[in-house]
Design a protein around this nucleic acid. Structure first.
Lengths: 204, 204
DNA sequence: TGATTATTGTTATATTTTTCACAAAACAAG
DNA sequence: CTTGTTTTGTGAAAAATATAACAATAATCA
């Protein structure tokens, strides 16, 4: 339920709400939340409405109610475990990021082919690829972050898929082949950067 | 010229073409390139057509011609300089990424408020925030990557904007306030991860 | 209490983006 | 040289997404 763009926005609302709540806000108007998240007020209302989340006419939305509705939608009652495959600089950066806690996500382990990485000190335990199945099962992991070099990506993915992973955040700049039931979210920093350059070039 | 989604796809085509060329391919069909980049063949053709790039009926597209057309569109005749603001783990990871070279991008410097970072060994020189203007001018930089913590983001952005930056790749999970002529590209890894979790939760 | 105002919830409209369908061109084979 | 095949290029249709408009409702104020 809910369209593609919509779920992404709902998650941004959630992020904005967590921030607003920390600032002591108890209720919020579609306009306010829109401004916080870069979305028009109408669209904010429409999104909530589409998921059956109600506000109060003239009174706006109750922050706690919004948050708990969103947590219900996104199954955020419990902490969700994630693994990182590829403990290079990017993998390390992600595994060290503090913000996950607030969002009830927990990076439980990293994996790498390079034996040298296994001995290095990270904030999470790092295992060889062979242990993947074990860890995925033990921690009930269904989502992985992929930060291996381009050439190693497909093999790593095949591995992940064979162990039951259903979602992959892919930071390698290649298209991955996966069965239909696996959702791959591609984040290509290079393309994002280049698009900015194009924009600034067009301006000049 | 060209829509938002379109320029992003063109850059992906470029990336795919660079890879295909390395593999020795000299010509390519819309279908092939589509498969490589996850786009339908019709859309590939339409994108090229919209930018006035021609193929040969029945002969497909010439890889070199495509690449040079794309380089012309994206102004990739020369190397383009980029700075990184915030030399934490993520900033470091980005500054060390090798792939930029192939795409004629060059990370020339990093910035950080923390004096401890300035002495650390990075692959690029790291300066205090005060030197930003100087470096931007000296290297003719128009695009920056922002990898500072949430709370420091807006101040850093104001700084960048005041020194003439026109494009910002924002990895901090906040909406930045900028003048209209500055393009901000938000990459929110947390949201991307959470969307995957939602997907896998819906599946279960 | 009645009028006024602020805000949601929703329907209608517009825009953007993608897919479909097929004619036009180029080449190959008989 | 005619017929068949492959692939581009593009106009029309469909689908997805966003904006605009406004009625419904709740709070406030005179």
């Amino acid at each position: 339920m809910g369209t593609f763009a919509q779920t992404k926005r709902l998650l941004r609302y959630r992020m904005g709400l967590i921030r607003l709540k920390k600032m002591g806000l108890e209720k919020v108007f579609s306009y306010t939340l829109g401004k916080e998240t870069g979305v028009t007020a109408e669209l904010v209302r429409k999104d909530f409405s589409a998921f059956g989340i109600k506000g109060h006419r003239r009174g706006g939305y109750d922050v706690d109610h919004l948050l708990s509705s969103l947590e219900r939608i996104f199954g955020k009652e419990r902490v969700q475990n994630v693994i990182v495959v590829g403990m290079g600089n990017m993998g390390k950066a992600i595994s060290m990021y503090k913000g996950f806690r607030d969002h009830k996500m927990n990076i439980v382990a990293g994996f790498d082919i390079d034996p040298a990485k296994l001995n290095k000190k990270f904030q999470i335990p790092v295992y060889p690829m062979e242990n993947m199945g074990e860890v995925i099962e033990a921690f009930n992991v269904s989502v992985a972050v992929l930060t291996v070099p381009e050439v190693a990506a497909q093999e790593a993915v095949d591995n992940l898929v064979s162990h039951g992973i259903q979602g992959i955040l892919n930071l390698a700049p290649v298209l991955l082949k996966t069965p239909d039931y696996v959702l791959v979210n591609n984040v290509n920093l290079m393309v994002e950067l280049e698009r900015l350059m194009y924009h600034s070039g067009v301006l000049k």
